[in-house]
Design a protein around this nucleic acid. Structure first.
Lengths: 218, 218, 218, 218
DNA sequence: AATGAATGAGGTTTCATTCAT
DNA sequence: TATGAATGAAACCTCATTCAT
């Protein structure tokens, strides 16, 4: 009855919920949502099938809960104080790092959710509103600020935002497809992308003096 | 039994196969592969369930066949003589158009296949080898040629290729997510992207004199 | 394609449907609707569980179908030309016989349906409207006719109808409860009831000169 | 530990048992025994599921306990001193009233039990032996007494008893089926039934001078 | 005595695939 | 070759019961 004892029970329940969610995400990523049975999940989480339903209403609900964990995780990332990063290139670099870290930490959850997003309108909307739109809003705000200070060319920020989101999403896709270059040479890739986004691929500018000369062909 | 009658028969069979494939693709895109039953497909194609199995070995085989049609369609696109497009910006513009046309023409097949790719290793490998790699090879060849002629800065082509593929894939994803901007302002978006890819977003270059000033903020 | 071949298939299907329905009714009567599994039914009908669902939408639907068969059977009974039975006692006797025959022929279906009626509002309404009300209407019409001809005392027919329905229903209940007297001495019971309904149990009337003196105590 | 505290505890336990039983009966009547879960009962009685099992061995046991309460209630009714009612019509009237009161007071318990009786042999036997047979014995004894005093015609009492039980049971059934007449015009119905049972429906007797002329058609 | 999380057997239903016609 | 009824494995989910707290 003490606050501590209540907490112990609650803690145990939260742990179990978490364990089930992780097990499910791993299986969904490996075999897909539909090829994963509730039996599989129960075994992976070392609980009975019945117990699953003490924590989640249905198998679909499990996927939604994974989605919500993703949203929370991303929110944490976005909430970081980014106001100090007033240099556009620093900001872009920070964003690419953040993105990479996020994907690496939540690879399974992302993969299990993304495949369903393409065919599940409910999930699709939720993902768009809670994952994509917040990212875009933050990005757009940043671009606006940099524009006002003349740190960027006068390109429409709402469009540029789509480019950036498309790049990060597309890279994630290549990652899932196990493209060796994306997996093994991420740092070079990120540096090159920053270079192109800021300076373009047309000739006539100097390559940056920097640590990533490897992306430059002799 | 005459060659003509055989041909007629074969033609009819090919038409049926095609009809079944289209019906399946539409349903897969709408409801997803797993939520579509063979009964659904049979009804949509106006044949019996048994007949499906005269044309395809299994439901999985149907998905593979859709994939193969995609590959063939893309091959046709890539086979176009692109050697004449020696200007990098023209080439990029052509490529974005091509991409858009391909997505619009094969939206259903693409969507049905993509969601499974994320969770079906066999399909994933096939997609990577037969859809992604050919694109990348063609692109890389082009970049190499332009590089040699000094039309581009000396950025590693294998990396740049990933950027371009990531952008197009990511845009497709935003399209599926029904991002209004991607759907309604595609031309502006494409022009802006070309602009950024070639000239970057750093200030200090003139905006291009061109038809798409709408992407430029006043 | 000939009408005959079509009929053969349809006949086979109708037979199967009937077989499934009979098997289900028997099991429902023995063990109750809820204690009977679809597996039980499939085994009893010697088909697979899947086949059940080719003929009926759900287990509930099976119960509804049993109900419908009951309704049809009763309709056949009621449709008999009763206009000739202008003597009230003959009519009552015919009705009791009819009732008995009906119960004997459909004992299982009745029992399976009645138990659910008490707790399933949908079924309850259907039973009341399609089984009870038609009986009552026919009875009331008959009573009205006899009244006009002065063959009965001036008792409100709508009320008397309830008495008659209550008696037959209640007897069925005693039958299900395996009351030995109802089972073994039905004819005596029916004769006594006719006697009471027409003449009452007050003293001062002669016992009928008739074939059923056994119901009279010496 | 004092006798008082023990008593208090026992009283509390008895109250709880009673509360659980009432809650269960209400739910069984509403949704049926099988559609009611132990969780439902626990919530309705505001106890935990575990607690149910401190008071009752199983869910089936709950139904048996409801049945036992019914039996006890009826015994109380039957134990009333009926010897003074030596007039058959008074007795019959008292019995109908008693019946009505019983049904009204125990509607939920009756309904929950009756539906199971039809498909549960154990319960069926218990109901027959402890509810039906005692009623019939009392009735038969009364009939015998009246017969000896010449207050009734010489009809076999064991048969007449079935008629009376059938009528009351059948009326209960019509009540459950929500027949509007049974619900709204019970007094007229009871009066008419008494009239018919004693005097019959054949013409040639005077209608009784009484308070219920409404049952008589002009 | 009371709790309610955990259990797991078993229920209903679906659906890809087969095969006799 | 086309059909569609039949199949039965397996999926998701429920719920009466137990037991550690």
């Amino acid at each position: 009855m003490s606050p501590t004892s209540t907490t112990r029970k609650e803690r145990r329940a939260a742990e179990r919920r978490s364990l089930i969610l992780d097990s499910a995400a791993r299986l969904f990523a490996d075999k897909g949502f539909h090829r994963t049975t509730t039996k599989d999940i129960a075994e992976a989480a070392d609980v009975s099938e019945g117990t699953l339903y003490n924590y989640f209403e249905s198998k679909d609900d499990l996927l939604m809960a994974i989605m919500e964990r993703l949203v929370e995780s991303q929110d944490l990332g976005l909430r970081l104080d980014t106001s100090l990063l007033s240099d556009p290139q620093d900001f872009f670099g920070w964003m690419m790092d953040e993105r990479k870290r996020f994907v690496d930490n939540h690879r399974e959850m992302l993969q299990s959710v993304l495949s369903e997003i393409l065919v599940n309108p409910q999930l699709r909307l939720k993902y768009y509103q809670q994952m994509i739109q917040p990212s875009m809003r933050m990005l757009e705000a940043h671009l606006q600020a940099r524009l006002k200070q003349g740190q960027l060319r006068g390109l429409a920020p709402d469009l540029v935002v789509r480019l950036v989101v498309a790049v990060t999403t597309g890279l994630y896709f290549l990652d899932v497809l196990q493209d060796p270059l994306v997996r093994d040479r991420w740092d070079d890739l990120a540096a090159m992308i920053k270079e192109v986004i800021f300076e373009g691929i047309s000739p006539g500018r100097d390559a940056p003096a920097g640590q990533n000369r490897s992306v430059i062909v002799e």
